[in-house]
Each structure stands twice: as C-alpha cells, then as structure tokens.
C-alpha cells in the first residue's frame, strides 16, 4: 500500500506542483546517487542517471506506477537505469588498459535484477544498518561512517584521521564484511 504522504506527493507532482517535485528531489537525490554510484562506479554517471530519472518524473509523471513504497520504487527505477546503462556502456576505469577491464568485467558478474535485491528491503534496512554500524570496532565504524554516510573521499578521511589512504580502504572493507555478517538476514534473497 502506498502511504498517504507518498500518495499526496505523487498526486501533486502529477498535477505539476513544482514544490512537491522539489521536495521529492531533495529527499531522494543524494541517496539514489549513492546507490547508482555503487553500481556504475562513477559519480558523474550516477548523478546523470538519477537526474534523468527525475526529468522523467517531471515530464511524464503519469508513467510512474507506484503501488507500494515510493522509496522502493525509486530505488528500483534507478537500479534498472544503472543496469541499462551498463549494458550499453560497460564499466570503464580511467587508469586501466581495456584488456584488464574486459577481464575484470567477465570475472565479476554484472549486477542484474536477480542478483541484487537489496533495494526491496530498503525501508527496514536503514535502521538495521545504523545498528550494525554501532557494533563495529570504533575506528572501523568511524571510517565507514565518514565514507558512506558523510560522503567524504578516501583521501580526505585519510588526511583527517592522519592515516594512509590504503588503511582507509582496508577499514572500509572490514566494515563491509562485518556488516554483511550482521545484516545477513535482511539481505537474504527470498
């Protein structure tokens, strides 16, 4: 069921209410960008895809058939645009030679609708995440939080905490593993 606020928001946007659109945009833009970033690994592309999604929301609001949670719906949309994007233009890393890139993409399977369903649980996940972060070792939690929640770059975290950039990455990695462990139930596929 669509919540009353989501319903109101959507209906207002369908009637061309810019204020409602702005509210929707500001509530979800950066979260969606972050999510897209996780898939396309390039923040410009991520922002571009999310922005395209919002163009569609404004231009063709009637095409948005939201039945359950608006948040889930948006995540599903951006997930699909990312997948579409990757099928059109495979991942590219600036500093890599194309040969390595090709190997890498064949080795790491692309995310598809089937092998990633995290967005389905998004609404419960946020709370669980914060709880799980609290259980992390202190430094680990701090670095992870600065990186994933505050959006700081590895470089600036390293500078701020007076550690190497590589340590930052290792700590983030550790956090991911620990979080994976404590969030297992929420990420399980049905």
């Amino acid at each position: 069921m669509l919540s009353a606020t989501d319903k109101y928001l959507l209906e207002s946007i369908q009637q061309g209410d810019y204020k409602a659109y702005e509210l929707l945009f500001k509530s979800y833009y950066s979260t969606l960008c972050r999510y897209a970033m996780g898939i396309v690994h390039n923040w410009e592309t991520a922002e571009d895809l999310v922005s395209d999604l919002f163009v569609k929301i404004w231009e063709e609001p009637d095409n948005f058939m939201v039945t359950s949670s608006l948040k889930q719906y948006l995540f599903r949309c951006i997930h699909n645009s990312c997948i579409n994007y990757l099928s059109r233009s495979p991942l590219k890393f600036q500093d890599l030679n194309p040969e390595t890139m090709e190997k890498l993409s064949s080795q790491i399977p692309m995310i598809t609708e089937e092998n990633s369903n995290t967005y389905l649980l998004v609404s419960e996940l946020e709370e669980q995440f914060l709880n799980a972060i609290k259980k992390l070792p202190l430094e680990c939690a701090r670095i992870f939080y600065l990186s994933r929640n505050q959006g700081l770059s590895h470089k600036s975290i390293a500078r701020e905490l007076n550690i190497s950039e590589n340590t930052v990455k290792v700590q983030i990695y550790r956090a991911l593993i620990k979080l994976r462990e404590s969030l297992q139930d929420y990420l399980k596929k049905d």
Partner: peptide
Amino acid sequence: HASAILDEGKF
C-alpha cells in the same frame, strides 16, 4: 550498494 542508503553528503 546497500550502504548507499546511509548517505547524507557528497551529492
């Protein structure tokens, strides 16, 4: 990917 929902900054 899932941790993206935590984001508050950057973008």
